[in-house]
Computed example of a mutant assay.
Amino acid sequence: MHRPAPSALLPEGRALLEIRHAVRAWSAAHPGPVAVALSGGADSLALTAATVAEAPNVRALIVDHGLQPGSAEVASAAAAHAVKFGAVQARVLQVQVSGSGGMEAAARRARYEALNAARGDASVLVAHTLDDQAETVLLGLGRGSGPRSIAGMAEFDAPWGRPLLGVERSVTRAACVELGVRPFEDPHNTDTDFTRVRLRHEVLPLLEDVLGGGVAAALARTAEQLREDGLVLDAMAESVVDADAAEIEIAAIETVEPAVRRRVLRRWLLGRGVRSLTDRQLRAVDALVERWTGQGGVALPGGTPEARLVCTRRHGRLSVGLENE
């Protein structure tokens, strides 16, 4: 018996068509096999349905964090929706959430590790929307870590694809109504202990009211412009010095424009084993070049329990090495 194509099984309401067009445009720019990260929420349900209609052999990957009672049932229901939409496979991935950085960070780490392990050669589409992008930009502004932190999320950061960065969250909810499915409402999304939740429910609505609307879209446009500028500056930085060099000659970078020089230093420091580099630490290393007064080295993340990782200036060169505490 002939099985109708998934697109023939879906309604053609305005909201779902907007999401399908977004997925279609993303797929044209980034061809290849795809899987979808499905949580059971409105955003990922709408993305899964649209992706099944626009791409062949789509797999749904559902992560069960096991953090809430009934999480297995939520995951099973999400998998059933994916199969109904026409996904060729809906796989539930059970993870253990542990580690540093708080529950939210640990859950995110476990989720992305599981998705990466299960994706095979496919890109994984995640359902971040325009609203998520705006929240990310505001979080970056609050950290004050420079253009890189407020450049938001890219539409493709291999293997992660984000087709819905131009789609409002209200559209995904409307699409679920058109699909006749009831999305899972994660209680964490209304827990004001999380900064992002307060941004979503308190800060952004206030900004929309005070500034007359369009704030989320404006923040997303700002992020896109900063990413484009950042790519140019990063390309300039790549031509200055060898990022894999054990040391950097001060004379090679001291006259370089600060925005480019700090990118040179960032690439080099990350290549020397530094982890989770902050803007403050980067500027302290930059001061060893630009404002050298004989100051000591800069302690950086990435050492061992017995020794810290330090960037020092000696004899006109920068180097990174371990020093005993």
Rank of each mutant, 00 (worst) to 15 (best):
V320L: 06
R275T: 14
G213W: 07
W268M: 09
Q133I: 03
I250M: 10
D191P: 07
I62M: 01
L130D: 06
E325L: 15
G297S: 09
P11T: 01
E168M: 03
R109N: 02
Q281V: 02
A251P: 02
R198V: 13
I250V: 14
G101D: 09
A118F: 02
V83L: 15
A223M: 05
W26L: 00
L130H: 04
D64F: 00
R3G: 08
F194R: 07
L211V: 01
A127D: 02
G142M: 15
L16D: 03
E185F: 04
D186I: 07
H128D: 14
K84S: 13
R162P: 02
L16P: 02
A237V: 04
R148L: 12
I253E: 08
E178T: 01
V97T: 03
P11G: 06
A49K: 02
C311M: 08
S7R: 13
E12V: 03
S239R: 14
E257H: 12
T190R: 13
R261L: 08
T48Y: 00
A75I: 11
D186H: 08
A42N: 04
G303Y: 12
G213A: 10
F194A: 10
R227G: 10
M103L: 14
F184R: 04
T222E: 09
A82F: 08
P305K: 14
A79Y: 04
A80C: 05
V83C: 09
A80Q: 13
A55E: 12
A87E: 07
G40Q: 06
S98L: 00
G40N: 06
G142P: 02
S98N: 01
H30V: 13
P33T: 07
A107R: 05
V310Y: 02
A216Y: 02
L125R: 01
L10V: 01
Q68F: 00
F184P: 08
R119L: 10
A60S: 09
L9T: 11
T195I: 13
H128F: 09
S170Y: 00
S145D: 14
S239T: 15
A122I: 07
L139M: 14
T136N: 06
E113V: 00
S149G: 06
F184E: 11
N57F: 04
D244W: 11
L10D: 04
L165V: 05
G140A: 08
A55V: 11
L204V: 15
V52L: 06
V177R: 14
A127P: 00
E202M: 12
Q281P: 04
G146I: 10
M236D: 13
V203H: 08
L67Y: 00
G316H: 08
A218R: 15
R261A: 13
Q94H: 14
A114K: 04
A174P: 00
D286S: 13
L204R: 11
A72Q: 11
G152K: 05
M103Y: 05
A50P: 03
T129W: 00
E325V: 15
L38F: 04
V177H: 12
A114L: 03
S149A: 14
Q94M: 03
L219P: 12
R291H: 15
G140N: 06
E168H: 11
D157I: 10
A134R: 03
